[in-house]
Design a protein around this nucleic acid. Structure first.
Length: 908
DNA sequence: GCTCTGCTAAGAGGA
């Protein structure tokens, strides 16, 4: 029997005398949520405590070594104890651990196997790794290559073919490292050769069953990882190093033991593990056994597996309490550690206690406070990502599908083996269900359940009526689940670290308000018909530190960016162009290319990003990762303009690059650490954005929701310029946004803009429209159907409006419909023709249409947080050029002052 | 309560 619950108070640890001698025990007061005989039921939607009654917590006694884990618990933490026994003590009903039990602290927090491996070496090493990541270096790249080739060999691929293909795939990285493909191939061949020989031997003498890399997730132990290989049900771990000792290294054993736990959960019974040290060649005879083989088998007892779970518990408890490891937790000797210097520097600069000691002087207090604040915020965000992982087993299939996090309606059709041993999986969709999955996404493809069934990480190649995936191993796929990624949080943390610990002092003086941004003299006029745009370009070009361009809707900020980049390029500078979304990067890049015209060879502009992220028309500029190292390197280094998302700016490849200036578009949509990821790479930076439009998208509510752009506008107003002439909206349309959000400063750039109406469009006769639609802004009062996130009345009325516009000669593609909720978006889509763009406010940001119809989806009152953020209204109302129609319930809109003013304007 | 984009994964090694 297993139990799961919430710790309800202090844990008491003591020693008692038993018939076996002196034993430790910990008494944990636990508010029990579920008691069940199988783990699946343990995690199924946990019942709320009985109505109103305060349940007395039950005491759970953790015996012997489990006291160490129990000692980590704090009130409010989650606890899972497997295989408990019922226990009556002084008339009280209790539970206690048995010899079979595992105690798991915060079981929903899914810990990586590599994290446990780092942690056992030294908890502080785990922390340092998390802070700064592993930079690009040859031993690591080579290790990765050898692993890939090993996987290929297991899948039956020819050795030489695999080496060639894998080395080619890493062309860009190898180029940056200055390695030649021949030398790398030879190096990999030496390592892989040893494995091949060993593999052959095994195949001849015994009935081996093999499986290459598999992602394994344990809902019992809260561990996830990818085993290099599984042989006859036991883990095989490959190491590209030399080890002539009799025993594998302890941390390697711990790693293998993690995989053993993961395999046991899937019904295996694992008692051995194998470590393969590829540098052990025939010349390096094992000093004790005389062995020639690279393989070392070792037995894995119960004790090791439980030790591993205790390590995992330490890590999980530390992450839940936001602790910072000092190194004293473990017994590693600092003088043997490769990271000793880094450890001391980080300790010194952040004034942290550490076993290695401190070096240097601490950062100013404001910077340490900033670091702590954002560290906490990013870790909070990380825990939200972990909540997403837990949902893989805590929610059932239908809940996941309703949440748009899974497609469960697939019918497996076929699979075929690709060249190189990978697999292509095909399935058809049996319903029109929506999900947030898109082509190019990495997903968990399973034959029923992402954790309990047969599942593989797979790439979505195609997603329409048919679904096509590629994966390392075959799966009869019937379900796809979103696979959450910590990549963004990892990179935010590294960017924060780099900004504070590696950033130059002058930059930090400006960011922390200790110095004002400075500007050089610029005589040139860049734009002669728009004073603010010209001022913005002048500031951007002349900035010694930074410039801030505030661009309200339609004010030509993309053009301004492009003009500024052209000026910088003409001055011989190397420019980084970045933004949070791929869409924003491609938009800005498009304008830059147009502006540069023939002034720059096209091979001097490079877009860095994944194939699925980069828009098709920008694909010719995309930097391929694979190829001849020297060519790939030259392409990147030769580029004078490099465009990439801020997340990509945090990649190992981009971190090797340096720029004179970084321009960040849509900067108000970026968190502070996200902005650092881009500007860390450049001497100076220019942020362009509008903090009156949508803020950064984050899961947790904390300081990440305010952008660096907004903070700097307040801190250094003199470094900012607001563009004030808009080229988009008819004057009537613009009026409300201008007065409500921009102090009345937003004006039409030209009389033509102010006066534009539908009459200007070819083939449109406004007089055929009903009178009510003659005004560029109109309100259509619809009482609404009273539902929460949809409104069929509004949807029907919108369909009629579209027909009316169409019969007046308007093209469907000139009409956009905006709704606050996704549910209403799909409701409206059912009513209107396909080529009318219907989407949420959030997704409409950055684009515009001739006609915009807004569906407020509210009856009687404005319910929900979505209406509280007025920035969203600003975005919705500033998308149209010539006509805006607001559809909603007047009673509801009148209930809030901003919406009431909006209504007055629309009806005026 | 609601909106929401990023990103190959996770692990690769040095003595």
């Amino acid at each position: 029997m297993h139990i799961r619950g919430t710790v309800a108070g202090d844990v008491e640890v003591r020693s008692v005398s038993t018939s076996y001698g002196e034993s430790d025990l910990a008494e944990v007061p636990l508010q029990i949520d579920t008691v069940a005989t199988d783990i699946e039921s343990i995690h199924a939607s946990r019942p709320a405590p009985a109505d109103g009654e305060d349940h007395e917590p039950t005491t759970v006694t953790c015996w012997n070594k489990w006291t160490e884990s129990a000692d980590l618990l704090e009130a409010g933490m989650e606890l899972l104890v497997t295989d408990v026994a019922e226990d009556e003590y002084q008339g009280e009903q209790r539970y206690k651990t048995t010899g079979e039990s595992y105690v798991v602290v915060e079981p929903s927090f899914l810990v990586n196997v590599t994290s446990i491996r780092n942690w056992v070496e030294c908890p502080r090493l785990y922390y340092l790794n998390k802070l700064s990541g592993v930079p690009l270096n040859y031993p690591v790249v080579k290790g990765t290559l050898v692993h890939e080739v090993f996987g290929d060999l297991l899948r039956g691929r020819d050795l030489e073919e695999s080496i060639d293909a894998r080395v080619e795939e890493r062309g860009l990285q190898l180029g940056l490292l200055g390695e030649s493909p021949e030398a790398v191939a030879e190096d990999v061949r030496e390592n892989a050769g040893a494995i091949e020989g060993w593999l052959e031997q095994g195949r001849l003498t015994e009935d081996d069953s093999w499986r290459s890399e598999q992602l394994l997730i344990s809902e019992t132990f809260g561990i996830r990882g990818r085993a290099d290989a599984i042989r006859r049900g036991a883990p095989v771990e490959l190491k590209t190093g030399k080890n002539l000792k009799k025993e594998p290294r302890f941390k390697d054993k711990v790693q293998a033991a993690c995989y053993a736990l993961l395999l046991e959960e899937r019904g295996g019974d694992v008692d051995t593990g194998t470590l393969l040290y590829t540098k052990n060649s025939a010349l390096d005879r094992n000093e004790e056994t005389g062995d020639l083989t690279p393989a070392k088998d070792f037995s894995m007892g119960d004790g090791l597996l439980k030790f591993v779970v205790r390590l995992r518990n330490e890590l999980a408890a530390m992450e839940m309490t936001e602790g910072v490891p000092t190194g004293y937790e473990g017994s590693a000797k600092c003088e043997y550690c490769f990271e000793q210097d880094t450890c001391m520097v980080v300790s010194g600069r952040l004034d942290q206690e550490s076993k290695a000691g401190q070096i240097g002087t601490p950062l100013p207090e404001a910077e340490r406070e900033y670091f702590d604040r954002f560290y906490r915020a990013i870790e909070e965000e990380r825990r939200e990502v972990h909540r997403e992982y837990a949902k893989l087993w805590e929610q059932d299939a239908q809940e996941r599908a309703d949440d748009d996090r899974a497609l469960i309606d697939l019918e497996f059709t076929e699979m075929r083996e690709l060249e190189g041993g990978r697999w292509e999986l095909h399935a058809t969709r049996t319903s029109g269900a929506t999900s947030k999955l898109r082509e190019g996404d990495l997903v968990l493809a399973s034959d029923g359940h992402p954790v309990r069934g047969n599942s593989e990480l797979a790439m979505i190649e195609r997603l329409d009526d048919e679904v096509v995936l590629t994966a390392d191993e075959p799966v009869e796929v019937s379900r796809l689940d979103v696979y959450p990624s910590e990549l963004t949080t990892d990179r935010l943390l590294a960017a924060l670290h780099d900004a504070l610990l590696k950033g130059n002092e002058r930059r930090k003086d400006v960011l922390f308000g200790r110095a004002d941004p400075e500007f050089g003299e610029i005589e040139e006029t860049f734009i002669d018909n728009n004073a603010r745009q010209n001022e913005a370009v002048t500031k951007a070009v002349g900035a010694n530190d930074c410039a801030l361009i505030h661009g309200p809707p339609g004010t030509g900020k993309t053009y301004t960016i492009a003009r500024a980049i052209r000026a910088m390029v003409e001055r011989g500078e190397r420019v980084l162009l970045s933004a949070f979304t791929n869409r924003a990067v491609d938009n800005a890049l498009e304008a830059v290319l147009e502006q540069l015209g023939d002034s720059l060879e096209s091979d001097r502009v490079v877009r860095v990003g994944s194939e699925s992220g980069v828009r098709d028309d920008m694909a010719p500029y995309r930097l391929e990762r694979s190829g001849e190292p020297e060519d790939r390197l030259a392409e990147l280094e030769n580029a004078q303009v490099v465009a990439a998302t801020t997340a990509t700016c945090g990649s190992r490849v981009m971190k090797e690059q340096a720029f004179d200036v970084a321009l960040v578009d849509e900067a108000a949509q970026l968190t502070e650490p996200g902005t650092h990821a881009a500007i860390n790479l450049a001497e100076r930076f220019v942020l362009v954005g509008d903090h009156e439009q949508l803020p950064p998208v984050v899961r947790a509510e904390n300081e990440l929701t305010e952008s660096l752009f907004e903070r700097l506008i307040d801190l250094h107003p003199e470094a900012g310029v607001m563009l004030d002439r808009q080229y988009r909206m008819n004057q009537r349309i613009q009026a409300f946004a201008s007065s409500e959000f921009y102090d009345g400063q937003l004006r039409p750039a030209e009389p033509e803009v102010a006066a534009r109406t539908l009459d200007d469009l070819e083939g449109v006769a406004r007089d055929t429209l009903p009178d009510s639609l003659h005004d560029p802004v109109t309100f259509v009062d619809v009482e609404g159907d009273g539902s929460r996130y949809t409104d069929s009345e509004e949807a029907a009325r919108i369909a009629e409006l579209i027909e009316t516009y169409e019969s007046a000669g308007l093209e469907r593609t000139d009409i956009g419909v905006i709704a606050p909720f996704r549910a209403q978006v799909s409701e409206i889509s059912k009513h209107v023709p396909e080529d009318v763009a219907v989407d949420t406010v959030d997704r409409f940001q950055g684009s515009s249409q001739e006609v915009i119809i807004v569906s407020f989806t509210a009856t009687d009152r404005l319910e929900g947080p979505i209406f509280e953020d007025y920035r969203r209204i600003n975005v919705a109302l500033t998308r149209p050029k010539r006509a805006l129609v607001l559809v909603g319930d007047a009673t509801a809109l009148e209930s809030e002052p901003v919406y009431e003013r909006m209504l007055e304007w629309a009806q005026g």
